[in-house]
């Protein structure tokens, strides 16, 4: 028998008697969760208070488990928004692909993980449950100020880092 190594492991394990346990006593003691933790998903609003989501279906297409369902609609200015937006959290694997795919930074994962339910059906979140009142992790970003069509937020050529439109029919420089 490798006697030396056996005695050494006994000694090494015994030394742990004098070490503090690393356990975090969860409900009383809270673990520190990093801000980019991938937890409960939200839909955010732009700084002006409008819904960021343009119902492009990219998140739904990127989702590996197919747990996002939505329906596009348009308001009177031609701005797109989801008529309904549904995430089935009993299927979501919190991979964060939806957040990466989103062109408008509407969908975001947050550091909240306490989502237990006794009834599986309660894990299906509708748009009312997902939509928050603020801009989430990106306070200044507004998709329609830097890109996109005129839907009442800005006129053509009035966006940030955007030049006024060129009259392609004119020959003058």
């Amino acid at each position: 028998m490798p006697i030396y190594s056996a005695l050494r492991s006994l000694w090494h394990v015994f030394k742990h008697t004098f070490r503090r346990p690393i356990t975090v006593q969860y409900p009383e003691e809270r673990p520190r969760i990093p801000p980019r933790w991938r937890g409960r998903i939200i839909l955010s609003r732009d700084p002006a208070g409008g819904e960021r989501c343009v119902a492009c279906y990219l998140c739904s297409a990127a989702c590996p488990v197919g747990c996002i369902a939505l329906q596009a609609a348009e308001d009177e200015h031609g701005r797109r928004y989801p008529a309904f937006f549904r995430i089935n959290f009993s299927r979501c694997i919190f991979c964060g692909y939806c957040e990466e795919a989103c062109p408008t930074r509407a969908i975001q994962l947050t550091p909240d993980f306490e989502m237990c339910e006794y009834d599986r059906q309660n894990l299906v979140y509708e748009k009312e449950d997902l939509l928050i009142s603020g801009p989430g992790k990106y306070p200044d970003y507004d998709f329609y100020r830097v890109a996109g069509v005129a839907v009442g937020v800005k006129d053509k050529g009035a966006g940030e880092r955007e030049l006024p439109p060129v009259d392609v029919r004119s020959l003058l420089p």
């Binding site: 394990v13 015994f14 742990h16 008697t17 070490r19 503090r20 346990p21 690393i22 356990t23 006593q25």
Partner: peptide, 8 residues
Amino acid sequence: IARWQDRR
């Protein structure tokens, strides 16, 4: 044993 494994 928990103590030796840094648990509680």
